[in-house]
Simulated scan of single mutants.
Amino acid sequence: MHQAVREFTVRGARGVELRCYVAGGRGPAVLFLHGLAGSAREFLPTAAALPERRTVLMDLRGHGGSTRHPADVSREAYVADVVRVIEEVGPPVVLVGQSMGGHTAMLVTASRPDLVTQLVLLEVDAGGGRSEDHEAMGDYFRSWPVPFSSRAAASAFLGDAPLAQAWAADLEERDDGFWPRFDAGVMVAAIGPVRVPRRTEWERVSAPTLVVYGQEGLFDEAAKAEFVRRGRNVTRMDLTGASHDAHLDCFGPWLAALRGFVLS
């Protein structure tokens, strides 16, 4: 990043520790929320490209440098964590979230509109998904032959897709090798509540909202159109060729969309 990054920890409910990062700039903070099995590090390049603003990134509970095995992985717990961080850095903020982080951002904005001036959602809808898909995801994470002997070995196993490379770069080095900074069981438990539709909450969001979808993302056109239709103050943007992780594999267009909205 162009500015120095300062690391700090916020204490959430029931002793959960939330690892956060902040870089300089002025004005209301832009707070980034990563998706399931990710970490704040995914958004460091995005934050670096917003030197005009103060940027804050957090590792959600169960992820990164935050508490690895939280007792509570409900949607309400994630929302409370974000509210706590916003209170720490100073409201109001621009809230940016991808995937499950975007779902969390949506719920924060619905419940505490006083804390959010603008909302940016990357690859988000109001909930859904099948439990069997989530279990398959857990099986995939459990299949990783951890600890990896090196980051190169992890990259060879995980593949060269941008998300896979982000996972490899984010591994925690320990004495016995390289480990993911999340637990597969916690991930399955955390994504489960996202299946519950939250359309009522989404329809309450009044903050100006940018909804960004990848052309090759998770949702079909009907789901995208329905989500946008139900919103109250929504601008939609689609990124050609982008995946569910457009902030990693379609960085230039993603950044242009974000800057055009946040700095306008």
Rank of each mutant, 00 (worst) to 15 (best):
D176L: 08
R142L: 13
E123C: 10
V83A: 12
F141P: 08
A153V: 05
R151F: 02
F141R: 13
D160L: 03
V93T: 04
W202I: 00
R130S: 13
M100I: 11
V96R: 03
A136N: 13
S143N: 10
A169M: 06
V186R: 03
D160A: 13
A207N: 03
G185K: 10
D220L: 01
F227V: 01
E201R: 06
R229G: 13
A161S: 14
V89C: 03
H103E: 12
E135K: 11
V186M: 11
L171F: 10
Q165W: 09
S99R: 06
R181V: 12
T117G: 15
D175T: 14
Y140C: 08
V186N: 06
P91R: 10
L95R: 00
R198W: 04
I191H: 01
F157E: 04
L163Q: 09
T209M: 02
E135C: 07
V186I: 15
G192M: 12
Q118E: 15
A110S: 14
M100R: 09
R229E: 14
V85Y: 09
V89I: 12
M137V: 12
A184Q: 07
D139I: 02
G127Q: 08
I86N: 02
G177W: 11
V94D: 14
W179L: 11
A154K: 01
R112I: 10
K224D: 00
L218W: 02
P197M: 09
V89M: 04
L122I: 12
G127N: 09
I86M: 02
I86H: 01
F148D: 08
A152K: 10
V93H: 04
V83F: 07
A222M: 07
M187V: 14
D125E: 14
A223G: 03
V194G: 00
D170H: 05
S206N: 01
A136I: 07
V211F: 01
R112K: 14
A156R: 14
L107C: 05
D170I: 03
A190P: 06
G127M: 09
R112H: 15
L115D: 02
L210W: 07
W202M: 03
V93E: 04
A152F: 00
G185R: 13
M100C: 04
F157V: 08
A153G: 11
F157M: 05
V93L: 05
F178H: 15
G127T: 08
F178R: 08
R112T: 10
D114F: 10
A169P: 05
Y213W: 11
T104M: 07
F219K: 01
E123H: 07
E88L: 05
G217P: 02
P180F: 09
P145I: 14
A207T: 04
A154Y: 00
